[in-house]
Design a protein around this nucleic acid. Structure first.
Lengths: 198, 198
DNA sequence: ACCTGAACACCGTTCAAGT
DNA sequence: ACCTGAACACCGTTCAAGT
């Protein structure tokens, strides 16, 4: 039935790494990082608990792969929002966090030591580069542009965290109204550089 | 030798809860939340691994107590910076995060479900109230002041996280220069409300 | 080349029993 | 009132062995 023909699979999966990542993604959003144990994962995938070690060095490496997927998803969302300008990209960032809370926490939490996973480190900087590039395109390389783009990232990043952790009593629960709330908060900020274009 | 006279202590500690919290605080900053197991903690405190359950419902409750301590420390730092105005309080917020990275991560991470720990929830809102109050004192209750104070919190909160997680390649390692970097980033932002006072 | 099963050293939590 | 020791159901990781 599948397009690729592998006559003798013999083992449980034609592509165990992919199967593990897929199941891990589901388990992650359902249980959080803490609940994502290798043993629970292998139980649900139908392989022995030692099987993942053929494809991932250890649990952290599997989490790193999940985080890398997350950064790719975020970068994609940012690209799609890019035509709407800096504000739209900021909103997309926050929306991503709210739609994939556990994934976002994994990407920016401390369970995965990013420095130890080369591929992850590469893809992790992309989303910042996107925001930063969007700001630069409005502001050029005026003195202070670097600081302002970091502030822009910090703002959307912090807002995402505070919303995720339910630290903001003022934030509405309803998704649509919450998106408006996000717009209002982001709208209350101006980034000052040497020569603002307008 | 000690000032309080408890003739028959008999048990290992006159005040086991305090001894546990103190040791847990050290273990936390050294190993991170992940490494803070009850069994490691009891080993280093010299009691059986079941002893903490006389004083804390479970591991999460002990973590909640640690987090509550952290919010008290943060609120104290904010109060001390209050005379310096909003910017100084923002810098104090970031400085606290950098000086107590694991504590900060615990306070704002997802290991402790804040809603389940009443005392924690109370103290957790204090630091935001402080920032928010400082902004309100400069801006009054003009329309948009609520959003602006949330944005201010999001900004320092996000910057703290990004620095902690070493996501900012542009940030210097040296503490003094890093503090200047923080000042520059925070300084690139203006909060716009209906009637800015200057 | 890829997977399994047993083994090891850890966990958090509960509970009868001790003082 | 406070603590202990054994027990239970979990973990991550390693490694000889199987196909």
């Amino acid at each position: 039935m599948s397009t690729s023909r592998r006559p003798k699979l013999g083992y449980h999966h034609g592509d165990l790494p992919a199967a593990l990542l897929q199941a891990a993604g589901q388990l992650l959003e359902k249980e959080g990082v803490e609940g994502l144990s290798l043993r629970a994962l292998t139980r649900r995938t139908g392989v022995s608990h030692a099987a993942p070690y053929r494809h991932f060095r250890d649990r952290e490496s599997l989490l790193a792969a999940l985080a890398a997927e997350g950064f790719a998803m975020l970068a994609q969302a940012q690209r799609e929002a890019a035509t709407g300008g800096l504000r739209a990209m900021g909103e997309a960032y926050v929306r991503f966090a709210l739609e994939h809370p556990q994934r976002f926490r994994l990407m920016f939490g401390s369970q995965v030591r990013i420095a130890r996973h080369a591929r992850l480190r590469e893809v992790a900087t992309t989303s910042f580069a996107a925001l930063s590039g969007a700001l630069a395109s409005r502001v050029g390389d005026a003195p202070g542009a670097g600081e302002a783009s970091i502030a822009a990232w910090a703002l959307v990043h912090g807002l995402s965290h505070l919303l995720l952790d339910r630290k903001l009593a003022a934030a509405p629960d309803d998704p649509a109204r919450r998106q408006e709330f996000v717009r209002a908060v982001l709208g209350s900020v101006r980034f000052s550089v040497a020569q603002p274009p307008a």
